[in-house]
């Protein structure tokens, strides 16, 4: 059954790439707007051998990771703090859930005003993209911990540390992993966006410049690379999530 699902997915992907490839070859699509898949792939192979591309990719990766290292623990701690306090959560949940609907990208000009156009602004922008989504999933994760398991733990003589480490953490893990997965994707979105506007470095900056110069081969190569990276990461995390919830998801 699993194998069949994978087979269907592989066929779907192959069809998508084939349509992409032949649409431009047959001439229905202008190759200056959308170059053929094979052309983009070849361009990518050349790009990853140039220092300019690699150094910008390294800059973007560093920013994404830095934002994650700062933002994820902050969001998890904040989510834990709020999730553990029913009264605080009741007061915060509603406004928070309303506020996440506001596209944070609109506020980029304000971030530039406050934090300038350097690394700080980009990393902070990434952190804010991570923070709300991960904080809200953490709150949900804390509240998903069954109270009766905690009471049982106390009756066994477990200390608070043991209860947090051996009951809370494990019961929260499936939702937490799901939150981390979304957080990384939001992080990449935030960083790329910040790099596309008033910026001198990073993949986002390169893509914007290529777009302005009608260099679609290069731009699409970057799109392909980033998509492959985020899809690969997303699938990895989803696999982990499935494994975790195989047991934890089903009730006692």
């Amino acid at each position: 059954m699993r194998f069949r699902v994978h087979a269907v997915q592989a066929i779907f992907l192959a069809c998508f790439l084939a349509v992409w490839e032949f649409a431009t070859r047959i001439g229905n699509v202008d190759p200056n707007v959308l170059p053929a898949f094979s052309t983009v792939l070849r361009t990518l192979a050349e790009l990853v051998r140039t220092d300019a591309f690699l150094s910008n990719a390294a800059v973007t990766t560093t920013r994404v990771l830095l934002a994650f290292i700062i933002g994820a623990p902050l969001a998890i701690l904040a989510g834990f703090y709020v999730g553990e306090r029913a009264a605080l959560n009741a007061r915060l949940a509603q406004p928070l859930n309303v506020l996440v609907a506001v596209p944070q990208s609109m506020l980029l000009p304000m971030f530039i005003l406050i934090f300038g156009v350097g690394n700080v602004q980009k990393v902070v922008f990434g952190v804010t993209h991570i923070f709300f989504v991960l904080m809200l999933t953490t709150i949900a994760a804390v509240q998903s911990v069954p109270v009766n398991l905690v009471v049982a733990g106390r009756s066994f003589g477990a200390t608070s540390t043991e209860i947090y480490r051996r009951i809370y953490l494990i019961a929260m893990l499936p939702l937490l992993v799901s939150g981390l997965r979304l957080a990384i994707i939001f992080d990449v979105i935030g960083i790329l966006l910040a790099e596309m506007y008033a910026s001198q470095s990073g993949i986002g900056f390169l893509m914007m410049r290529w777009g302005d110069d009608y260099r679609m081969k290069e731009m699409m190569a970057a799109v392909l690379l980033i998509s492959a990276a985020t899809i690969g990461f997303n699938e990895m995390m989803r696999l982990w999530e499935t494994r975790l919830s195989a047991h934890a998801g089903s009730s006692t």
Binding site: N148, L149, T252
Partner: peptide, 27 residues
Amino acid sequence: PAPGKISVVFQDATLMPWKTAMDNVLF
């Protein structure tokens, strides 16, 4: 709680869903 002196058998079993029967008893 007086572990080792009093133990409690809870309503609805209250087992850790991520642990096997053996690991639940060992916990």
